[in-house]
Design a binder for these strands. Structure first.
Lengths: 244, 244
DNA sequence: CGCCACTTTGAATTAGCTCAAATTCCGTGG
DNA sequence: CCACGGAATTTGAGCTAATTCAAAGTGGCG
């Protein structure tokens, strides 16, 4: 049994489908197929459009004046992209496709106009922004309070949850990121990511698929949560069945 | 000359004032005076209202099921609070006053109605959400890429910038947080914060006011940026005055 | 088949943490 | 006004988790 109950998965999946339908019928949308490495938009580029991911996967990369690069977000089908441009009038980050996918692009001003006729569209927009804020806060919490191993486990848990939200199976996931990219996202080195994954596999929390170390099997998502618990709870007993 | 040019400070300050005026005349607003330690709202509480800070300072605390607490945001006059509740229907964090201040509270549905008559109100709302997302991403970048000392310097720089944005002097700031709170926000221990501040003072990047170590003088904000640069640039060593 | 990028693993190093003690600050009550 | 006590801060000393450096190992793909 997964962490997300079936009806929740259904709900989220439906929410995403509804959102896409709504956009499609309310607005002129430009569809674009992107491939791994393509930039959907880049930091500094003038903001006029928002984007929604119909398929594929995108990373958001924040750049500092002095050349540091930081992956600050990962996005999947149904996610909105480009909110950071609204306040300043230009995008604050690069959005890079990590996979072949389809991006829907539309004008922000056209969206606002469409919202007048269809208030539900406005709700959907606000919910997307709100969810983004909540996600970022969870990321900060994870970065600040979890040790490296737990952060990797949390990363996998979130990924599985993202898949579950989209009605996909969560027991086997394909990371489309190198260890270096994962490490950047999680604030640790690629070696630490590798060691953490090895440890998770050694304790049977995850398993590597037969071929290729990018395929990761997650027999039970709960095992990841329990692992995180164990990392956080200092000296709690050995098999202190973490309640429920 | 400050990092933010006078006209920028003016602009931001005006933007905030305009926003507050707009809200006051467009909506029925409940004003509330809060004192240090008061909760504006709490995680799990049903979301119906948004809030804007008219004065004072508020910290946003994220809570995990297992009891970890993480300060994930700091807010000042003109900042909006409660966005995270829109998506889920209940607040995801606690909002705690760190100081005496006045909070303006109004119904989210009333705001949306008011936006129909005054589209500029909608722009202001979206800008606030967008800015929040951008800020969170900068925090993540700082957490992931900066060593402890630089993170503290960046924290002070951001604080000074927040004051500057509000038309206040930036050369002397009063931290209304303990070292422990700062450390929690920055993902480090209170001792590390203390040591970092001592080092900044020793190298004359900051100065402690005569009495009380909560008062910090920042002769020039640029010195903080330069300090961060030096931490990030490994061995560039133009004016290698780091040691002594 | 062989190259190249990615990954794993080990060993040494270090930044930041933990533990501990001394010091300062500030509110409270004598 | 001063003494007292608790909370916050500073600083030192050792320890540990994570990094850096280095060397194999592995897989994908022309």
């Amino acid at each position: 049994m997964n962490a997300a109950t079936p009806q929740n998965a259904q709900t989220n999946s439906q929410r995403i489908a509804t959102c896409l339908d709504l956009l499609r019928e309310a607005l002129p949308i430009q569809r674009r197929v992107v491939h791994a490495g393509d930039a959907l938009y880049q930091a500094g580029e003038r903001f006029t459009n928002l984007h929604v991911l119909n398929s594929g996967m995108v990373k958001i990369v924040n750049l500092s004046p002095d050349g540091r690069e930081q992956v600050v977000g990962l996005h999947f089908r149904g996610d909105w992209l480009g909110f950071d441009g609204i306040a300043t009038g230009s995008y604050g980050c690069d959005a890079i496709a990590m996979d072949t996918g389809e991006v829907w692009t539309f004008r922000y001003d056209a969206l606002l106009e469409a919202c007048v006729a269809r208030p539900v569209l406005l709700s959907v927009l606000h919910e997307a922004m709100s969810r983004e804020i909540g996600r970022d806060r969870d990321s900060m919490m994870s970065l600040c309070t979890l040790p490296a191993d737990a952060r990797v486990a949390d990363f996998l848990r979130n990924w599985a949850e993202a898949l579950s939200d989209r009605g996909l199976r969560t027991d086997q996931i394909t990371l489309r990121m190198t260890r270096a990219e994962i490490g950047n996202y999680l604030g640790m080195t690629l070696e630490t990511v590798s060691r953490a994954l090895s440890r998770l596999a050694r304790t049977d929390v995850i398993r590597f698929a037969e071929k290729g170390r990018r395929e990761i099997q997650i027999p039970q998502v709960e095992a990841l949560s329990e692992f995180i618990q164990r990392c956080v709870t200092p000296a709690a007993a050995s098999t202190t069945a973490v309640m429920h």
